[in-house]
Amino acid sequence: MRKQSVKVKYLLWGFFLFLTILAFFTRVLLPLETTFLDIINRLLLGYKQVTNNTAEFNTTNNGGRVIAKRSDEFQSVFTIDRGVPIGTKVLSGDVFVGVVIGGGSSSSKVQSIASPSSHTQGVFENSGIPSDFEGRGAGLLSTKIPRGITVAEGDTIVHDEGRKLIIGTVAEIIDILSDPFLTIIVQSPINITTLKNIEILTL
């Protein structure tokens, strides 16, 4: 009789332990598992969205990213993660940033239009007067125009080649009485040191 009561006691304790484990599993482990799976699912969806956006940016919109830079008083160049032909124009929105001067199948070296010794054909948007703009470094370009042509600080300079692109705005007008020409200093709106994304011009 005593042995039988002991067995019943163990059975009751075992049944109680089973219920405790079952309750712990259903109330704690299952919600944790659901939460964990939900987090994993969100992370995977986020990764997929970022991947799709990057792919769309880099292919559909002819976009690219700046992966290296060098800017000093001698040269303003940067490298992009797209292999494109030499001479291809590189933009940031509607701003003319630079021209591809070298590279390979997966990257290209771009020279800023403000790089010293760089020359860019532009037009004073208000007057329609064309001129050759030479890079001076630090985001600046300059040109000379005859006296008598109306120009003012803030005037926009554009490059028109099937699509009107902004070169910059007139930042300073240097007027020397002994010089029959006005020296025009133009400031590009793009800062190469902070440039991250670009667009390849396709006509």
Rank of each mutant, 00 (worst) to 15 (best):
R136M: 13
I166L: 13
G135S: 05
E161F: 12
F74E: 06
R27T: 15
G98F: 06
T202F: 00
D175Y: 02
F16H: 00
G168D: 11
G98E: 02
V97H: 00
V84I: 13
E172Q: 14
P189R: 08
S5P: 02
I21D: 02
T20G: 11
V50G: 01
D72Y: 05
I101C: 03
V95G: 01
D179M: 01
R136I: 08
K3A: 03
G139Q: 06
F78S: 03
S71V: 13
K9D: 06
L17Y: 09
D38G: 13
G148M: 06
K48D: 15
A152K: 13
S107E: 08
G83N: 10
I167F: 11
S118V: 02
N191D: 12
Q4S: 09
T34Y: 14
E73T: 11
V90M: 01
W13H: 11
I184W: 09
G162K: 05
I113S: 10
A23V: 12
L44R: 15
V6T: 08
G46M: 05
F181P: 00
T54R: 10
I200G: 00
P85Y: 05
K7F: 02
L141I: 07
G139V: 08
V77N: 06
T202V: 12
T150L: 09
T183S: 12
E134H: 01
T156V: 15
F24M: 14
G168L: 11
F36W: 12
Q111R: 10
M1E: 14
G87E: 00
I21T: 11
N52P: 01
I80V: 07
L22M: 15
D175G: 05
L29D: 13
T183H: 07
K9F: 12
I167G: 07
S107I: 04
G98C: 08
W13I: 11
H159G: 10
E153F: 03
T183V: 09
L30R: 15
P130G: 09
L165T: 10
E161D: 14
E199L: 06
L201A: 04
S76M: 03
A152P: 02
T183C: 05
S117Q: 07
I101G: 03
G139T: 10
G135M: 03
S117M: 03
R42S: 08
A114D: 02
T143K: 02
L91W: 01
I192P: 04
